[in-house]
Design a protein around this nucleic acid. Structure first.
Lengths: 136, 136
DNA sequence: CTGTTTGACTTTATTATTGAAAGGAGTTAA
DNA sequence: TTAACTCCTTTCAATAATAAAGTCAAACAG
């Protein structure tokens, strides 16, 4: 399905998705159009889901990076799920997990105050365990 | 520091980082060169850390998405840290955290067998708690 | 009040890239 | 052998990026 050239293309696009097809072609020993055709195939097959940027969230003021394990008491998760939908400004991701807890939230907060407020509102719907990221 | 136009630029680039500067300019009501200058400023200031792609890892065979909380018994973390450096093919991220555990690992595995093997080797250096992602 | 500087933008013109079309080489199957 | 297919290259027209010059308004010093 994917050969070494495709893997190399994915690798290079991961490092710099704004590279020109011509330049990417040079890295994988193909011409621009050939490279472009391969990239289009990777898009169509769904291997490449999209092109995006890495944003330094700390520079936008979101300095606190937290993982929150959610334990819902109730069997009805809807109140919890609709609550987190209202908190998209903080949420990076919400994962349903097996193991310890029901969900794992990855969040970024600009201050302890706003995190505290979030946690208080969260507590109306579920219990949680908080882990703060110190370093990556 | 950042005005609404910059925020809009970041938003559009997050959705599609391969958009042309001309097209991006139309979305924020600027010309191509003006947009390009703003993007360059965002790069220089470090707000934009890089351009990348979203890869569907499941299509590459990495179907198992796991979060692993690490609890090291020993105060010397070096053996653990050098072990995970050898496992980069599975590791998405390693976070040092406060709270429950010392580290949080985010990993992707192609099979239960390989995950099991990873966990057995991991267990030589640290205890862990495993959470498997069921849905995002 | 006037003149200067600065920053952010537009316009213009050159250069580079993209994308479409045509064609070649190698592989497979009837 | 021939036809169909895939994957690539070459060519060229359309488009975008980039550099340079010019415009405009705000801030500020004399």
């Amino acid at each position: 399905m994917l050969d070494n050239t495709d893997i190399k293309i994915l690798d290079e696009l991961s490092k710099n998705s704004r590279i020109t097809m011509k330049e990417l072609g040079e890295k994988v020993h193909l011409t621009g159009p050939a490279t472009s055709a391969r990239v289009e195939k990777l898009e169509d097959s769904g291997v490449i889901e999209g092109y995006t940027i890495k944003i330094n969230q700390a520079k936008l003021g979101f300095n606190i990076h937290a993982f929150i394990t959610i334990i819902t008491q109730s069997t009805n998760h809807k109140p919890y799920l609709s609550f987190i939908k209202t908190q998209e400004q903080y949420l990076v991701s919400n994962y349903k997990i097996s193991g310890d807890g029901c969900y794992l939230l990855e969040c970024k907060f600009p201050s302890n105050e706003l995190m505290n407020q979030f946690l208080e509102e969260l507590n109306e719907h579920a219990n949680y365990k908080l882990s703060i990221v110190i370093n990556k």
